[in-house]
């Protein structure tokens, strides 16, 4: 397929001009690629996309890069600030470096891959997104996570999965401690199968058998005075 590549230099083009150009793309923009040069940590790069375009950001991005993404593929060749792919609905966001706090926060769908580490609150209030962090995640990750999968190739910080609902967490390394109502659960064949497919899609060499699964004990779903001390 003949792919047209558009080049945008953010030292000469404003974020507003870039995003509005990306928003104007027609639904069938799969043959379009965009390369963003000189991002210089700017905020809200490529947010609100709603077409199957591929955007490559050649450097570090600031807050909310690829926020609320729908259908697009956004690759960041660097680190990202707070809230990368926040509230993502679908598509793929791939951070080649590290991500700051709240990566993938409240995401409803799609896949977020972070090759490095993610800071605190990774996957907070996630609602169906799949997040693969090849490195470690900080404290309060998957806090109040509702649905989706958080997969951590490294270690997890304090209070993992605090007040978690129906999301699933898989960790290969150490977990400093689990938050309220989060417990370790049995790894069943369907979980290993899910991980194998995810790793194949992400082209990473983790072995599903090296991971442990965590999820909700569902003891705090309905408030009861006997549980007051756990809140």
């Amino acid at each position: 397929m003949n792919k047209k590549t558009s080049l945008v230099d953010l030292s000469r083009t404003s974020i507003r001009e870039l995003n509005q150009a990306l928003h104007r793309l027609p639904a069938g923009s799969g043959s379009t690629r965009w390369r963003i040069r000189e991002p210089r940590g700017a905020h809200a790069i490529a947010c609100g996309l709603n077409s199957p375009v591929r955007v490559e950001i050649e450097g570090h991005a600031g807050y909310y890069c690829a926020g609320m993404n729908q259908r697009a593929t956004v690759v960041i060749h660097g680190n990202t600030g707070v809230g990368v792919a926040e509230n993502m609905m679908s598509g793929l966001v791939h951070v080649k470096g590290n991500a700051s706090q709240s990566a993938g926060a409240t995401g409803h769908g799609g896949l977020l891959i972070i090759d490095g580490d993610a800071s605190a609150r990774c996957g907070i209030s996630m609602k169906g997104i799949d997040i693969l962090v090849q490195g470690s995640v900080g404290h309060a990750s998957a806090f109040m996570a509702q649905a989706g999968n958080l997969v951590v190739g490294g270690d997890a910080g304090e209070a993992l999965g605090d007040s978690i609902y129906e999301a699933r967490i898989f960790v290969r390394g150490k977990v400093k401690d689990l938050g309220s109502d989060c417990v370790e659960k049995e790894m069943r064949p369907e979980h290993r199968e899910f991980l194998a497919k995810l790793f194949a899609r992400a082209k990473v060499r983790f072995r599903p058998g090296d991971f442990r699964r965590y999820g909700s004990a569902r003891q705090l779903y309905n408030f009861h005075v006997d549980h007051a001390a756990k809140y």
Partner: peptide
């Protein structure tokens, strides 16, 4: 289930972050 709504936003804290959040919503 008894559904809790969080008391603080999940991806920003404080007025400086709010500035950036507003900018993101405007961009979207």
């Amino acid at each position: 289930i008894d559904q809790r709504s969080a008391c603080r936003h999940p991806d920003w804290t404080g007025p400086d972050d709010l500035t950036i959040k507003i900018e993101e919503l405007r961009e979207i």
